[in-house]
Computed example of a mutant assay.
Amino acid sequence: MRTLIASPFLGEHLVLRPDDPRAVKVGAHRYRDLLAAATRPDNVVPAWLADAARQRWDLDLAGRRLTDTVLVREPSALGYGRASYELNLGCNYDCEHCYLGVKRFEGMSWRARELVLRLMRDAGVLWLQLTGGEPTIDPLFSEVYRLAWDLGMVITLLSNGSRLHHPAILELLTSRRPYRITVSVYGATEQSYDGLTRRKGSFRLFSRGLEAACAAGLPVTLSLVITRHNEHEIDAMRTLADRYRLPFNEYSNISPTIHSGAETLPSQSAAFLRARKPFMGCGAGHTHFHVDPHGKASMCKVGRDSAVDLVTEGLDGLLRLGEIADGLMARTGGCSGCALSSTCFTCRPLARLYQESGAPLNRYCQHTGR
């Protein structure tokens, strides 16, 4: 199994380990040398790369075959760097705040998923986020994860942690280590956690999964989800993260569903409605994209209109995605001509969801006095 990946990434060239935040930036000429060496039957890890691997990761690659230790990825004419993939909208929880709304268990066949993963690789995707619903309950999770890893994509897994203790999943994640596993935390006690997820026993499964992942030395980060149901436990949730010595982020701004549904909004904690920084634009649709369970590629998880069908259109469809994204980012409706647009803190696709859901202005707009 290869140890390192060499790949273009947004105009640069990197050599990296799938589970390590440190990378080695190399020049275009050295990347081309690796591409050429990978085609020769007598290839050996170049001395410069062996030295870099020793210094950066304490790896001894001297004298080893290049193709046994480094996956050298082909360049892509599209040049995307990141993508997210929803394996399935289904979930074993029923959280009131979930932005997916109705969580149907739907997904593609393995043949279609394999095609989509290879298209992502061919589009240049190096960092891949696997999400859901809950991705680990998908019947093809292991197959998707394994192929994505083997294709040379660096994986971040978003999970509620409820199945991380399963032996097959642990074996997969320890043999093909992810870059990061982000585990959502919905409370610090069984009463609070199970109340938020609306699933009895969910706190027990979360705790068991977190214990197993930490014992296996997996790279876990916690996402503390704050709602009106658990805001009283925020300090205890932080203490939980500290007890496991895990880094954590806090998520507290609740959005409408992807269908502009307002059913999530009552779960917002008024005390933890955070002010966002001004939105300065992003590369959605240009440097990264999102794929839903049916193989539809959109600019991101929020802006899903005019999606490209990867299964039928392939890479040619992605050529349209930048133009689609630019159209969705244009200010329309109540946002067109806004005098405060230069300091707006909500991107246009998200603002549209808030508007269509009838959310209070203070959730997404500076014109709270109107």
Score class of each variant (00 low, 15 high):
residue 51 D to F: 04
residue 51 D to E: 15
residue 52 A to F: 12
residue 53 A to Q: 04
residue 53 A to P: 05
residue 54 R to S: 14
residue 54 R to T: 13
residue 58 D to W: 07
residue 59 L to H: 08
residue 61 L to Q: 01
residue 61 L to G: 03
residue 62 A to Y: 12
residue 63 G to L: 01
residue 64 R to G: 06
residue 66 L to F: 06
residue 67 T to A: 14
residue 68 D to A: 14
residue 68 D to H: 10
residue 68 D to T: 10
residue 69 T to R: 08
residue 72 V to Q: 06
residue 74 E to F: 02
residue 74 E to L: 05
residue 74 E to K: 07
residue 74 E to Y: 04
residue 76 S to I: 09
residue 77 A to Y: 07
residue 79 G to W: 02
residue 80 Y to K: 03
residue 80 Y to L: 11
residue 82 R to M: 13
residue 84 S to W: 07
residue 85 Y to V: 00
residue 88 N to L: 09
residue 88 N to W: 04
residue 88 N to F: 04
residue 88 N to M: 09
residue 89 L to V: 01
residue 89 L to I: 00
residue 89 L to F: 15
residue 89 L to M: 14
residue 90 G to Q: 05
residue 90 G to T: 03
residue 90 G to Y: 07
residue 92 N to A: 09
residue 94 D to I: 01
residue 95 C to G: 11
residue 96 E to H: 13
residue 96 E to W: 09
residue 97 H to A: 12
residue 97 H to D: 08
residue 99 Y to T: 02
residue 100 L to D: 03
residue 102 V to S: 15
residue 103 K to R: 15
residue 103 K to E: 09
residue 105 F to V: 04
residue 107 G to Q: 06
residue 107 G to S: 15
residue 111 R to K: 11
residue 111 R to V: 06
residue 113 R to Y: 04
residue 113 R to E: 06
residue 114 E to P: 01
residue 114 E to N: 13
residue 115 L to K: 14
residue 116 V to Y: 13
residue 116 V to R: 08
residue 116 V to H: 10
residue 118 R to G: 04
residue 120 M to F: 10
residue 121 R to N: 13
residue 123 A to D: 00
residue 125 V to L: 12
residue 125 V to G: 10
residue 126 L to G: 01
residue 131 T to F: 13
residue 132 G to C: 11
residue 133 G to T: 01
residue 134 E to Y: 08
residue 136 T to W: 02
residue 136 T to P: 03
residue 137 I to F: 06
residue 138 D to Q: 01
residue 138 D to E: 11
residue 139 P to E: 12
residue 140 L to T: 01
residue 141 F to M: 11
residue 141 F to R: 13
residue 142 S to M: 11
residue 142 S to T: 12
residue 143 E to T: 02
residue 143 E to H: 10
residue 143 E to F: 00
residue 143 E to Y: 04
residue 144 V to G: 03
residue 147 L to G: 07
residue 148 A to V: 01
residue 148 A to C: 06
residue 150 D to Y: 03
residue 152 G to K: 03
residue 152 G to M: 08
residue 152 G to N: 05
residue 153 M to E: 08
residue 154 V to F: 13
residue 155 I to V: 06
residue 158 L to S: 06
residue 160 N to E: 03
residue 164 L to S: 07
residue 167 P to T: 06
residue 167 P to I: 06
residue 167 P to E: 15
residue 169 I to K: 01
residue 171 E to H: 00
residue 171 E to C: 00
residue 171 E to Q: 10
residue 172 L to C: 11
residue 172 L to R: 02
residue 174 T to M: 03
residue 175 S to Q: 14
residue 176 R to D: 11
residue 177 R to V: 04
residue 177 R to C: 10
residue 177 R to S: 10
residue 178 P to Q: 08
residue 179 Y to L: 09
residue 180 R to P: 01
residue 180 R to N: 15
residue 182 T to C: 13
residue 184 S to E: 02
residue 187 G to A: 05
residue 191 Q to K: 04
residue 191 Q to M: 09
